[in-house]
């Protein structure tokens, strides 16, 4: 069910500029469907990133984040060829991990 993320990691000096696009409905639990019934809460609860398997950060997020969200962050000490992996877990227990290779800026 969970669809792939789109990850871009570009090196600027020794800092990797990482941008992640996630595909998720991010339902707030306040929207009603055509039949007038509340659409149940369904959102990404936690996200985390690793560089070559070593955690760089993790965060708890809320249903206030938009549908198909974008996250951007910088990782110091990254080198070209390193692997960035991102994982998200939502409130239904669904999870998805995708990875990308850090590339030198074109």
């Amino acid at each position: 069910m969970a669809e792939p993320m789109k990850i871009r990691a570009t090196l600027q000096g020794d800092v990797a500029d990482v941008r992640v696009l996630m595909a998720h409905p991010m339902e707030t639990g306040q929207r009603k469907d055509a039949a007038g019934k509340i659409v149940p809460l369904h959102f990404i609860q936690s996200i985390g990133a690793t560089l070559n398997g070593k955690p760089v950060f993790s965060a708890d997020i809320s249903q206030a984040i938009s549908r198909n969200p974008v996250f951007a962050f910088k990782v110091k000490g990254a080198r070209a060829g390193d692997t960035i992996a991102i994982t998200w877990t939502d409130n239904k227990g669904e999870t998805r991990t995708d990875q990308a290779v850090v590339r030198a800026a074109p």
Binding site: E3, P4, K6, R19, L21, A23, N68, V70, A72
Partner: peptide, 12 residues
């Protein structure tokens, strides 16, 4: 446009 979710549909 730098991070357009349209890319998710492109992949699909």
């Amino acid at each position: 446009e730098q991070d357009n979710p349209a890319e998710l549909f492109e992949v699909k």
